[in-house]
Nucleic acid binder design. Structure first.
Length: 450
RNA sequence: CGGGGCGUGGCGCAGCCUGGUAGCGCACCUGUUUUGGGUACAGGGGGUCGCGUGUUCGAAUCACGCCGCCCCGACCA
């Protein structure tokens, strides 16, 4: 992709309303544009990252055995009357009427609808278990949207819903999602910790929040040092096998947000293992049993011929919010530092002097051979000044930059800059493409957790 | 929802108190200059001053109403 044809409206100055790094950089790098409070247009650069995140989420959902479908953003109110939530849900639910005066709503979540979809056809325990998911925009009319996409009113979420014939089976579904989440976030280059969440009136221990560790996180979390950098399931992990070991491995050490903090249990953690950090919630999984299946009569017959409500769970990932979390976790004063797996492009190819024939020729050849190898290149082919190009490239946060200019070419060299470390090295033009392709592929491989 | 504040070109702001027909920096266009970390100089284009009503000879400026947006807190993916 040539920058001259791309749409990248960057800002040199900081927008005043953006107080945190991720919000600031997303606006400055031309990733999003605010259209109303908590509602954003996704500009090309931001959209590319969003799609990368979605892709990883999908791959890991499928791996765990979940099946994708897509439910609408607008829902009829009657479903919500069945569960009692049409009245129970507060003003954060956006209610609208169609031309016939029927009550509709812009979905803040989809438990009712998925329950309706499944109850229509699933009648026997033999048809279970099922895990269905979708990635869809939701709307919650938050009192106070803020921090850009971290707390918007419209946001993109992945929601999985599990249906089982017994609580024992429901636990298995829960553990599958638990394991899938460990892989999902790690593949994005995030250090994520599952922490006990508030089970609410349903009780039980089957609810966890997945929290990204980031200095400017919204909530305090307390955890045992041993949870940092812990192994996650590999790509050969058997989701049909026994998942209890991986679950207990990740949940036996102390980890809690301040709401769930237990001073007594915390006291038992050795002082040298105590970590008190900030975190951003990016995922939430819970088992809620028959909360919806009971009132909505979503039932199956058991082997004994008994009719029972299905055991359900729901598992969310804040897809759009993850962009914010990623930047909070990976940035410096110049911009984001995207992990290769979610970067909008792998490489920024900077042509320092477009007017110079040799420079442009080398760039065009590099662009072609990198793209032929499946590497995503943003070719900086504008006539802007060098300083501007460099600053803009850093602001985009692409993991690698290749700088080509007449000065280096005279020596037969070009410069490679690693965004993460700031490290710059000269490499010979001759085998540059091969070298860079290898570098990018290695980086991607590392994050793929094969 | 409590508390604070702001709406003036794409972005950041001044002007408002003390009404007289809009200005600065960045960005943009033209020229010169510069040429490896947002260059310098000169010229130029672009604004229903959030919306409405009122006061006045005259309103960005004063009054009233409405709308939008931001920040702190409580709440939430």
């Amino acid at each position: 992709m040539r920058l001259s044809s791309f749409y990248l409206p960057t800002l040199k100055e900081n927008p005043v309303e953006a107080t945190i790094a991720s919000h600031r950089f997303m606006l400055r790098a031309g990733m999003i544009r605010q259209e109303a409070a908590g509602i954003y247009a996704w500009l090309p650069l931001g959209l590319r990252v969003l799609r990368k995140i979605e892709k990883i989420v999908r791959e890991e959902q499928e791996r765990a055995g979940a099946v994708e479908l897509l439910m609408p953003t607008i829902q009829p109110a009657d479903l919500w009357s069945e569960s009692g939530r049409f009245d129970a849900y507060g003003p954060e639910m956006l209610r609208i009427q169609d031309r016939g005066g029927r009550d509709m709503l812009y979905g803040p979540t989809n438990e009712e609808m998925i329950t309706d979809i499944v109850r229509a056809n699933v009648k026997s325990y033999k048809q279970l278990p099922k895990m269905l998911y979708h990635i869809q925009w939701k709307f919650r009319d938050e009192v106070r949207p803020r921090f850009g996409v971290m707390r918007g009113r419209e946001f993109l979420m992945k929601d999985t819903y599990s249906f089982d014939a017994s609580p024992e089976d429901a636990r298995k579904s829960y553990l599958k999602m638990f394991a899938a989440y460990l892989r999902t976030f790690r593949r994005m280059g995030l250090e994520t910790i599952p922490v006990k969440a508030d089970p609410g009136p349903i009780g039980g221990d089957l609810t966890h929040e997945f929290v990204v560790l980031a200095e400017n996180g919204e909530s305090d979390i307390y955890l045992h040092r041993g949870l940092i950098g812990k192994d996650i399931p590999g790509s050969d992990f058997d989701f049909q096998g026994n998942l209890e070991p991986i679950f207990s491995d990740w949940t036996s050490l102390y980890a809690a947000t301040d709401e769930m903090h237990d001073e007594a249990a915390w006291g038992e953690v050795p002082d040298e293992d105590k970590l008190s950090l900030r975190g951003i919630e990016v995922g939430h999984i819970f088992y809620f049993g028959t909360k919806y299946s009971e009132p909505m009569r979503a039932r199956v017959q058991t082997a004994e011929g008994k009719e029972v409500p299905m055991e359900m769970g729901s598992y969310g990932i804040g897809v759009s919010r993850l962009l914010g979390a990623l930047i909070e976790a990976h940035h410096d004063e110049d911009g984001p530092k995207w992990p290769a797996s979610v970067a909008p492009f792998h490489i920024g190819l900077v042509n320092l002097k477009v007017a110079d024939e040799e420079t442009s020729k080398v760039c065009a050849e590099l662009e072609a051979s990198l793209e032929a190898a499946g590497i995503e290149v943003l070719y900086e082919d504008t006539t802007d000044r060098a300083g501007e190009k460099f600053a803009r490239m850093d602001l985009c946060g692409l993991p690698f930059q290749i700088v080509v200019g007449p000065r280096g070419l005279k020596e037969g060299e070009l410069e490679l800059k690693i965004r993460k470390t700031g490290e710059k090295t000269s490499i010979p033009v001759d085998n540059a493409a091969t070298h860079i392709i290898k570098l990018v592929q290695e980086e991607l491989q590392l994050l793929a957790i094969a």
